[in-house]
């Protein structure tokens, strides 16, 4: 199976460990993945607040580049790990399919750069690919280092599920739970797995943003989790990098590692910490009981 890959801006900077660990896990599973050449920003959230039309054009260019890169006969889905990009690209696909007037405008704009969009590409999150294309069976067959005894709270966040996810239940997501459970982890059941972490509010209106993230950390810790697994660069950043600040702000002593689910999968596959970007984490991966196989 081969895929095109849209990293988005975050996976090249603050979310580098996500890219590193995802690519390592994909290659261990024998999945071919090609980065879309000269990709641009997807036009997500903040951009859309200024111009929706241009945001659609940004996403449409990405699709058009992807289509140019692949033969028309090839089945090629675009793997998008960042939740905001996943939403942005999906939103564009849906809106262009459903609103002909909008579609005509975007076609005209792409035409100015000799680009074409047909809509044949699907947007896929790694969780979707791993669960539905690869399958739990194949994944557990590669298990060398079970995550035994590790209590994991899977945190899906918002934009990965809502409103476009068709690979998981929007109310009670379970794809990440199933993957990590198959690799030996114990899954913590908690009610906030798709509650918003605050997104960019941690950077803009910090007291509000921190509070939203803190609520999540506090509840996850209360439910006895050793590590929080995430599937979005911004969620990971908020929950991990601001943790010490939250402790200061709310006079708490939370010390919960926050890893990408792909990092945890890589550990279970026996990959090296460097391959998984483990050294980029602020809070070392270790559980209350001992260590997460490191």
């Amino acid at each position: 199976m081969s895929y095109l890959y849209f990293p988005g801006c975050s996976l090249k900077s603050s979310g580098r460990a996500y890219e590193e660990s995802m690519l390592s896990v994909f290659s261990t599973l024998g999945l071919k993945i090609n980065e879309i050449e000269d990709w641009n920003c997807c036009g997500a959230t903040a951009y859309m607040s200024i111009s929706e039309l241009k945001a659609f054009a940004l996403s449409a260019r990405i699709f058009a580049l992807a289509e140019r890169q692949m033969q028309a006969s090839d089945r090629a889905d675009i793997v998008v790990p960042c939740a905001a990009c996943y939403l942005g690209l999906n939103k564009t696909r849906h809106y262009l399919a459903e609103h002909p007037k909008l579609r005509r405008k975007i076609y005209k704009a792409l035409n100015a750069a000799n680009l074409k969009y047909t809509g044949r590409m699907q947007v896929r999150h790694p969780l979707d690919v791993l669960n539905n294309d690869v399958g739990i069976e194949k994944i557990s067959s590669l298990l060398v280092n079970p995550l035994e005894g590790v209590q994991i709270a899977c945190y899906y966040g918002c934009q990965l599920l809502r409103p476009y996810s068709d690979f998981d239940d929007q109310h009670e997501p379970s794809t990440m739970d199933r993957l990590l459970k198959a690799l030996g982890a114990e899954i913590v059941d908690w009610p906030l797995k798709s509650r918003c972490c605050g997104g960019s509010l941690t950077g803009t209106v910090q007291d509000v943003g921190l509070r939203l993230s803190y609520i999540l950390l506090k509840e996850a810790k209360k439910r006895g989790c050793d590590v929080i697994a995430t599937a979005c660069p911004l969620c990971q950043f908020n929950l991990e990098c601001y943790q010490s600040r939250m402790n200061r702000y709310y006079k708490d002593k939370i010390n919960v590692p926050v890893a990408y689910f792909t990092q945890l999968m890589g550990i279970a596959f026996g990959l090296s910490p460097q391959q998984l970007g483990i050294q980029r984490l602020f809070i070392p991966l270790k559980s209350g009981a001992g260590h997460v196989c490191l």
Partner: peptide, 10 residues
């Protein structure tokens, strides 16, 4: 302040 988490919409 809307963080576009889409909870309302869904």
């Amino acid at each position: 302040l809307c963080a576009s988490c889409y909870s309302c919409a869904v």
